[in-house]
Design a protein around this nucleic acid. Structure first.
Lengths: 215, 215
DNA sequence: AGAGTAATGTAATCATTGTTGACATAGCAT
DNA sequence: ATGCTATGTCAACAATGATTACATTACTCT
């Protein structure tokens, strides 16, 4: 009994007549538009006034759907983590001749570059810190768990101090993926030709191999 | 004729008598305190009111030293880049049995973890974008130039398409260093035991080796 | 169909923060 | 001493996030 009309029904009927008092699906619109603005201009340029204007709604309408701005950002992050987890899971499960880490690495980079708004909020220092939503914290664990699972599988049990080796490999893998994603999103890798992107995916393997053979 | 008293003179005389109207070295104090706040609580928690209070000065006093808050942040970033460049240069120049990339990698991580406030601002999406100070842009180039220089030296000239190889290696190296630094600073690598940190430094070499031998 | 009720949106208002302009004070040179 | 400049204060403004009281719509139940 949450909504009177599903989003699909709204869309089918031709969405938002000119005289409508109700927006129809403001919650969805707020999340989507906020994500766009963040992708284009960064979190700090997102204002409720702009959001309201663009959606043809008063600025206080947001508070019917979110207790505050912070919570809207948490929702953006949450949806990002879910989709991110889905993407990594899919890459992991896909049957392919390629190494599973190559597949996951590519999926990681692709997600970050195609969803810069989500990715920024997901790893923004302060957004998650104050979030008391259990859902977002659960969603945030899943993508990393994907990486950890595969590293665990790939780390020989014979190694003494196996736990440390796993931790090392996860840290290295994640650092490489996160660092490249962040630098690329923020335009610090100007001449990021596609060949470099491909090489970065391959680098995942070399990094892992080096870490396993070392120590 | 910029200052009547150098900072050192102020300090020698016992700094800031209770009845002082002038702060003595407000510019320095603003930059330093701002850096601390950012390190502890993030950029978005930095307010001019707080800054003024803590330095025993009105909130508008800042505007005698910086045209606006943004410019203060740019100054923090600028000083960060200078010190960062110095640290990398020193590591590169130091005579040691260790590989130069190991030395630079350690210096990179050490700087980031010991100066989280600086590092955050330096790579904040929006701080540098709007900065029209030539100084900060020059300072920002130097640290990366250190890494690039060494990669260039280390990349065999015989390789055809050498430029792409260099670009790939720089991207990979920087991504690993930046990613680990960011994740560590923001507390995402909770169990970051010192052994993991050491392994991360070593990983730099394996990554570079893999990239050179590949493609 | 019609009443009742919850969901959704608006308008007016407030607190916080960055910023500005007019004024006050201190230090330095002559 | 006098004047100039750097530095700091105070009051006010604009933008923004948030709150409260009220208005409108849509669903449910009979």
């Amino acid at each position: 009994m949450k909504t009177r009309k599903t989003p699909d029904e709204i869309l089918k009927t031709g969405a938002k007549p000119a005289t409508s008092y109700h927006h129809g699906n403001l919650e969805r619109g707020l999340i989507d538009r906020a994500t766009e603005v963040i992708a284009n201009q960064g979190v700090e340029h997102l204002t409720l006034r702009l959001l309201g204007e663009e959606l043809g709604v008063s600025r206080s309408a947001l508070y019917r759907h979110f207790p505050d701005k912070q919570t809207l950002l948490v929702r953006v992050a949450e949806e990002g983590f879910v989709r991110f987890g889905d993407a990594l899971d899919a890459a992991r499960a896909s049957k392919s001749a390629e190494d599973v880490f190559v597949r996951m690495g590519r999926a990681y980079f692709d997600f970050a570059r195609q969803n810069p708004g989500h990715y920024r909020v997901m790893f923004d220092t302060t957004v998650l810190k104050k979030a008391n939503s259990a859902k977002v914290h659960a969603a945030a664990k899943r993508p990393l768990a994907c990486l950890v699972d595969e590293v665990v599988k790939d780390t020989p049990e014979t190694d003494k101090d196996r736990a440390t080796l796993i931790e090392t490999r996860v840290s290295g893998l994640w650092s490489l993926l996160h660092g490249y994603s962040m630098l690329a999103i923020n335009g610090h890798l100007a001449g990021t030709s596609s060949s470099v992107a491909k090489s970065m995916v391959a680098s995942v393997l070399y990094l892992l191999q080096g870490q396993r053979s070392s120590r």
